[in-house]
């Protein structure tokens, strides 16, 4: 079965699940009553264009219970919130999805860089984010435990929007200082963090000498020159580097190992069939852009816990060809949508 056939099969199963009264959630069942029945309309992934774009306001304005599939009724759920916005956050509920995603991700990182049983340190957004439990699960799957240093990205965004750059810098130092203390006093070999925090930490101590052998990184834009800087200068080509692209709504897209031909351009591949990334023409979002061309990132999430068709991310990326081991399109050099036209607040995190 090809990846495309697997995706279509998984899609049909997911549609069947979410749009059947015995398994589906109140939101999608109601939606079906006002629109169309996807069970009859959707046969392949190409048919997904019949869905309008998922409105993320629904995740903010509606009570989380509307997203509980009937099959999960009565089971307490985790409430995860999206990254760095202020005001009422968008929430996604879940049960096991994050474990599935991160158990699978564990098979993509090497024992050399993340030794089984070796402790992890997570320095980044914890709080109400899925990432916090996900990283701990990832460590646990590998027989390891995890230390945590929190960073509140909402506070950072507020500081940067208010042009309080000195305070933002102090806060980043405060976070990196705490991580340095842990690394000086505990044996840690695996690190999850954001690129900027990694850089700040490396200015406080020699990360390799402190025992770190692998860095799993995500959170913000990582353009080629910055990746090169991280690999060559921050990690000194001695530490495994695993950039990822992800968020609460998708899970995480792993990157393929860099080759010299990549010139430090990172390509990410969605965890298909559970999530599908397309790079679409912003003016005509049914169409994908040509390969190696910029477009807006569109995410479709297809799990039994959560169905989210055609959500337009606030990111743009280059569409890339499939690359082993992935048989589907990748997204590369992800950056905030409109980054070339507008100044986007990303901050330290």
């Amino acid at each position: 079965m090809t990846a495309s056939e697997k995706l279509d099969a998984h899609l049909l199963e997911t549609i069947q699940w979410h749009f059947s009264p015995e398994t589906g959630c109140p939101f999608w069942l109601e939606w079906m009553s006002k629109n169309f029945d996807p069970k009859t309309e959707i046969k392949t992934f190409a048919d997904m264009k019949k869905f309008p774009h998922f409105q993320d306001e629904w995740l903010r304005d509606l009570q989380p219970e509307v997203w509980v599939p009937a099959a999960y009724k009565g089971r307490p759920f985790n409430i995860f919130e999206t990254g760095g916005t202020t005001g009422m956050p968008k929430q996604r509920i879940g049960w096991e999805d994050y474990k599935t995603d991160y158990s699978e991700f564990s098979t993509k990182i090497s024992d050399e860089h993340f030794p089984k049983g070796g402790a992890w340190l997570m320095m980044g957004p914890t709080g109400p984010r899925r990432l916090r439990l996900a990283i701990e699960h990832l460590a646990n799957v590998r027989g390891s435990s995890c230390y945590f240093i929190d960073l509140d990205p909402r506070f950072v965004k507020k500081l940067i929007t208010n042009k309080q750059f000195d305070v933002a810098k102090q806060y980043m130092e405060h976070v990196a200082d705490q991580a340095a203390v842990i690394l000086k006093n505990r044996k840690v070999s695996g690190l999850f963090t954001t690129p900027k925090l990694l850089e700040a930490l490396s200015e406080k101590l020699d990360i390799h000498a402190a025992g770190i052998r692998g860095v799993f990184c995500g959170g913000t834009t990582m353009l080629p020159q910055y990746v090169r800087f991280i690999v060559e200068e921050v990690l000194e080509n001695k530490i495994g580097f695993y950039p990822t692209y992800g968020n609460t709504l998708m899970g995480l897209a792993a990157s393929v190992p860099l080759t010299p031909e990549d010139n430090y351009s990172i390509t990410y591949y969605a965890p298909q069939p559970r999530a599908v990334l397309r790079v679409v023409n912003p003016e005509k979002t049914e169409d994908t852009v040509d390969y190696d061309t910029w477009g807006r990132v569109e995410l479709t999430t297809l799990t039994k816990e959560f169905f989210m068709p055609r959500f337009l991310e606030r990111d743009e990326a280059l569409r890339r060809h499939p690359r082993a081991p992935y048989e589907w399109d990748g997204v590369a050099e992800v950056r905030p949508f409109g980054a070339m036209e507008n100044k986007i607040v990303e901050g330290v995190y």
């Binding site: 850089e199 200015e203 020159q225 910055y226 800087f229 200068e233 921050v234």
Partner: peptide, 9 residues
């Protein structure tokens, strides 16, 4: 063009 991190280093 280089980023600030290279200059700091």
């Amino acid at each position: 063009q280089v980023n600030a991190g290279i200059i700091r280093r």
